[in-house]
Design a protein around this nucleic acid. Structure first.
Lengths: 146, 146
DNA sequence: AGATAATAGTTCGCATGCGAAATATCTTGC
DNA sequence: GCAAGATATTTCGCATGCGAACTATTATCT
């Protein structure tokens, strides 16, 4: 198959990603949020008092990027940032009441967003997950060798 | 499977994308290029005198983004930008000699980059492609309905 | 304890990425 | 042939995204 095939596969990955983020962005913008801000709301609701580095790991983003995202959410009064007492280098992130309220308002929006994806046959869902893991494993291995 | 499963799948898409782009970035940086610049070199070599909008379509990017990328490559003397005679609104993009030379220098690098991906069994390659297309179709349909 | 390492976040410079507005040019309708 | 709309590209403001440099704090080693 060769180089052409590989580039085609990654083109498709790119497109799936973009399509998903565009959907998420459109949903989020109904609540004056960005796609990532919606995801962050979700993480913070499930993990109160999370630290920035932990949040960055869950988002699969670097610390510097995450810091910027959180910063904008703090400015928008959605998130509160506080120094921990145990380790005065670290910050804990928590949803404000406004952030909590906004999350609840997105319930219906999120449900509508994701429903169509469940149309994918269960067999395909499992296959997709398995192969993606293989691809990821290969890529990570390459990265370490390089 | 539900919301959790879907978000997990997109998390993996994200990671595969990132892993691929990091590999590509590392390879490109050996030649003082970015990942996208390497991809653009490829497209321009195969399609001389391509227009910006066509390039944007091939990259699956917006015109404004593509314009910026080309701009930086023109500044780096890799690409030449000229008005077409037929349509004085449009620009044609062509590799300079320096751009052409740089592309040739990346031959070995690119081959090493992509080889590991061919380890994926052919059955999986085909399955992956098929399911990705399904996912993409579902997402596009959602986008149009929304 | 005191020097040194490591760690948590922020900031900086740069490259994508998007949509909207602006500009220049072409096409269409009359 | 000319006004109105369509099209190609650029520019702008904003949000990600990365790695490197920086600050503040904690851990480690002797």
């Amino acid at each position: 198959m060769g180089e052409q095939w590989i580039l085609g596969i990654f083109q498709t990955y790119r497109e799936v990603n973009q399509a998903f983020f565009q959907l998420l962005s459109k949903a989020a913008s109904k609540h004056k949020l960005t796609a990532l801000q919606l995801i962050v709301l979700r993480v913070l609701r499930e993990h109160p008092e999370i630290r920035l580095t932990e949040l960055a790991e869950k988002l699969n983003l670097g610390n510097s990027t995450t810091s910027g995202i959180v910063d904008r959410m703090v400015k928008a009064s959605l998130v509160e940032r506080e120094r921990t007492k145990q380790d005065r280098r670290a910050m804990t992130l928590t949803l404000t009441d406004k952030g909590m309220e906004l999350w609840r308002e997105t319930d219906a929006t999120r449900l509508n967003l994701l429903r169509p994806l469940l149309d994918l046959p269960e067999d395909d869902q499992r296959e997709l997950e398995r192969i993606q893991q293989d691809v990821l494993r290969i890529l990570r291995q390459s990265r370490e060798e390089a």
